[in-house]
């Protein structure tokens, strides 16, 4: 029995390791001291005030929101289309097709960033928000595809043919049967792709030029002095991405209770 205790303690320790940096960043964003460490220097909102008046941070924040909103819609559309293709059709070359659709997240973002920098510089897109959006859709679409495909796996393959036999066209069937069924996973995909895009800094760093998104701004700040302002920005970024990722999980797992 004691072995079990040790194992439980070990598990708790591992989770502490995973969660400690998150807790620490939030706690010390409210610390009055210039260096975010113990002893506690008193509660303060100074650092939040400082970043609210910082134009580079605000501009980065707005860019990140814009990028992640557009990325989530595009990536989720592509993800749905790919998941549906996999669900409904068989064709020669389906395996390479699915590999192409699923592989992007396995390539290190640093290498994708460099590849996209060289590619976009040939078509004069470096330094535009469009470049960041295009790059983010590449790595986000596979996540959307996976989520929606899991949901489609629970849809009986006879439901669509039933609608066809009742006279609905294939387009009509998608609209009135398939999409409503997939809706929770579509919302989950919107949330998770928005979170991934909102957090992504490597591709954005390579192709953004002067159009810095918020994580790229954080990367720039990291190269300088340690400052509790980064804690404040980090806490905000963290709050947003946790909300999105949590929402996505809630939506994606609702299926379990329904069926």
């Amino acid at each position: 029995m004691t072995a079990s205790r040790w194992q439980a303690a070990w598990t708790v320790a591992v989770f502490l390791f995973i969660l400690a940096p998150i807790a620490s960043i939030v706690v010390f964003s409210f610390n009055a001291d210039r260096f975010p460490s113990l002893p506690w220097g008193g509660f303060s909102l100074t650092w939040y005030e400082a970043i609210l008046t910082d134009d580079t941070v605000r501009a980065g924040f707005v860019r990140s929101l814009k990028v992640s909103a557009i990325v989530s819609v595009l990536a989720t559309f592509i993800g749905f289309a790919t998941a549906y293709t996999d669900y409904r059709f068989n064709f020669t070359g389906k395996m390479p097709y699915l590999a192409l659709a699923a592989l992007p997240p396995t390539v290190p973002v640093l290498i994708l960033g460099l590849a996209m920098l060289s590619f976009f510089s040939m078509v004069n897109l470096v330094g535009t928000l469009r470049a960041i959006i295009i790059g983010h859709v590449v790595i986000c679409a596979p996540f959307a595809m996976a989520l929606i495909r899991m949901r489609l796996a629970d849809m009986s393959p006879d439901i669509e043919p039933a609608a066809w036999n009742l006279g609905a066209s294939r387009w009509r069937t998608i609209w009135s049967v398939t999409i409503p069924w997939c809706l929770p996973s579509i919302f989950a995909a919107l949330a998770i792709t928005a979170a991934v895009s909102f957090d992504e800094f490597m591709i954005a760093w390579f192709v953004s030029g002067l159009e810095e998104t918020l994580p790229v701004r954080i990367l720039a700040l990291l190269q300088g002095q340690v400052s509790p302002r980064i804690n404040a920005i980090g806490s905000i970024v963290f709050f947003i991405s946790v909300t999105l990722a949590g929402l996505a999980q809630l939506l994606a797992t609702r299926r379990d209770r329904q069926s």
Partner: peptide, 13 residues
Amino acid sequence: FTSYLVRAYSWKI
């Protein structure tokens, strides 16, 4: 899915 960059910064402190 969240803020690897921020977590790395946190460890740095």
